[in-house]
């Protein structure tokens, strides 16, 4: 009859449903139920932690993040500033994104600025000038066009982009 929901009888094209399940990925068959977020795509709005195991050898590593307590903590600003200055960029990015709303996020922000990185407020990513190319400042002085290196937190890597940078968008 006209009112019946035909998706129950003749069904629907399943490709979008399969896509929401992450199928098909490359031709290998991946298990999907181990990280099944929810029966509906609409309520699968975040990754869920799968079954995993931390070998004991992983849980008592000393000196993580140059810290002599295990697990590591950052509770002393003076000391922390010195430590933070020793970290490589990726470690700073990790601390910045993984521990929001904490002292260490502030410290890594300051350290990255010292290294000429700037945080883009809208893109919510870090960028720095590509040293190989001098940007061209716009006539009105509010922006510049040039080549920049972005740190992409989704792919966890640096990538170079042509970009028009508005000075009020960075901090």
């Amino acid at each position: 009859s006209s009112t019946i929901d035909h998706s129950l009888t003749i069904g629907a094209d399943l490709s979008s449903m399969l896509h929401s399940l992450g199928l098909p990925r490359d031709n290998k068959r991946h298990r999907i139920l181990d990280t099944f977020q929810s029966p509906w795509a609409e309520t699968s709005r975040s990754e869920v932690q799968p079954r995993f195991f931390i070998p004991s050898s992983f849980s008592n590593i000393s000196n993580v993040l140059q810290c002599n307590t295990t697990p590591p903590t950052f509770n002393n600003i003076e000391l922390d500033q010195q430590r933070v200055a020793l970290f490589q960029d990726e470690t700073l990015f990790y601390l910045f994104y993984k521990h929001p709303g904490t002292v260490i996020q502030e410290l890594t922000y300051l350290e990255l600025r010292k290294r000429n990185w700037r945080f883009h407020k809208i893109l919510k990513t870090w960028l720095t000038k590509d040293p190989m190319m001098e940007p061209i400042v716009a006539a009105d002085g509010f922006s510049e066009r040039g080549s920049y290196v972005f740190f992409d937190p989704q792919r966890w890597e640096k990538c170079q982009r042509e970009f028009i940078l508005f000075y009020n968008a960075i901090m």
Binding site: D5, S7, L8, L14, M17, L18, S20, L21, L23, I32, L33, F36, P39, W40, A41
Partner: peptide, 10 residues
């Protein structure tokens, strides 16, 4: 039903 279908596909 749509949830059930997705579960069976999994």
């Amino acid at each position: 039903y749509k949830g059930a279908l997705r579960v069976f596909l999994g």
